[in-house]
Simulated assay, not measured.
Amino acid sequence: MAWLQLHLATTEQHADAFQAALENLGAVAVTLTDGADQPVFEPPPGTRPLWQNTVVSALFEKDQTPELILAALTAQGLTAEASHHETLEDQTWERAWMDDFSPMQFGERLWIIPSWSEAPDPQAVNLKLDPGLAFGTGTHETTSLCLQWLDGADLHGKTVLDFGCGSGVLAIAALLLGAGETTGTDIDPQALIASEDNARNNGVADSLALYLPEQMPAD
């Protein structure tokens, strides 16, 4: 089955109205993306800031036509600044992004394993982690180098501070590799939520203290 994907350029002020109208017209999915390379840095949990120039993309079954959809939007007083459409062939969408994230080894002992994969070496130190909102999955060079260093270090009984912890991957890896007292801190509250969830999934939540910088204990 093929799908029609329609892309509409609009503004931050009108994006929600376009989204609601497209959903009412039968869109099975609506996505909002940046239309002019305007970064929106990690927002506080529960907020959703948009870009001044926003592209609203809607996915319809192929029997819909872009001309009729645009006419229906115009009848509601919604006219896009620009538009284009494309045909998408069907695929297993819920698995498409998973193909780019597979088990990764760092050093001799440490692996990062996504939840949908089997551990290549069940006897290794296997850290369970899925990509999420917070930075740190092991794919970036800086994270990879830190993970390799941790794998080669003697961490037993050591105190570890993960400053700018993101997903918590380094702190969790340190704990799984034998570290003792471990603390993570980040300016992004979403990162602390992700770190706590990931620590819990790896059975080390009770050993990882997490703080915003201004909440760090003085000692």
Rank of each mutant, 00 (worst) to 15 (best):
T143H: 01
R109I: 07
L192V: 06
A15V: 12
Q148H: 13
A199T: 05
T159H: 01
Q76F: 06
L25T: 07
L210W: 10
P49K: 00
H156L: 10
Y211T: 08
K62V: 11
L147G: 02
G26L: 00
S57C: 11
D162S: 09
E12C: 13
W3T: 04
L145C: 02
L161S: 00
D186M: 06
P103G: 03
D121R: 12
L68R: 14
G166C: 01
G178N: 04
V160W: 01
L4D: 00
A96S: 08
D130T: 05
G166H: 04
D154F: 12
E23C: 11
V125G: 00
D154N: 15
Y211N: 09
R95T: 10
N126V: 04
L22R: 09
M1C: 11
D188G: 00
F163I: 09
E118A: 12
Q13K: 14
L161A: 11
A80Q: 00
L70K: 10
T11M: 03
A9N: 14
D99E: 15
P131K: 06
A174N: 00
A179D: 01
N24F: 07
F163A: 15
H156P: 09
G26Q: 08
I172Y: 03
Q91R: 14
D197P: 14
A21S: 04
L176I: 04
P45L: 02
L110R: 08
T159Q: 06
A15D: 13
D99V: 12
D63V: 12
Q64S: 15
T137F: 03
K158A: 11
W116K: 04
T11R: 09
V55R: 15
V30F: 08
L147A: 07
L50C: 10
T54M: 10
F18I: 05
I113Y: 01
H140L: 04
E42I: 08
G77S: 08
P66A: 11
A20K: 11
L78T: 03
L212R: 15
T31D: 12
G164T: 03
L192W: 03
T182G: 06
V204H: 06
M104Q: 13
F41K: 08
A199W: 05
K62S: 14
L133R: 04
F18T: 02
C146Q: 05
L50R: 15
E108S: 13
A20Q: 14
P217N: 14
D63K: 14
L110E: 07
V204E: 01
G107F: 05
G157D: 09
K62N: 12
Q52H: 10
L68W: 12
A71Q: 14
P103V: 00
S115E: 09
L177R: 00
L155E: 07
Q123P: 08
V169K: 05
I113A: 02
L25Q: 01
L70N: 01
L175A: 05
L212C: 06
E94T: 13
A71R: 11
G184Y: 03
W116C: 01
G203D: 00
F135R: 02
A9G: 10
G184P: 07
T92L: 09
A15K: 13
V56H: 14
A209T: 13
A134W: 07
Y211R: 06
L212K: 11
H7M: 12
L150P: 01
W51N: 09
L192F: 09
L192E: 08
D121G: 11
T47W: 06
G77L: 05
T87V: 07
E23R: 12
A205Q: 11
T142D: 05
W149Q: 03
E81C: 08
W93T: 01
P217I: 10
A199R: 05
Q190V: 07
V160D: 07
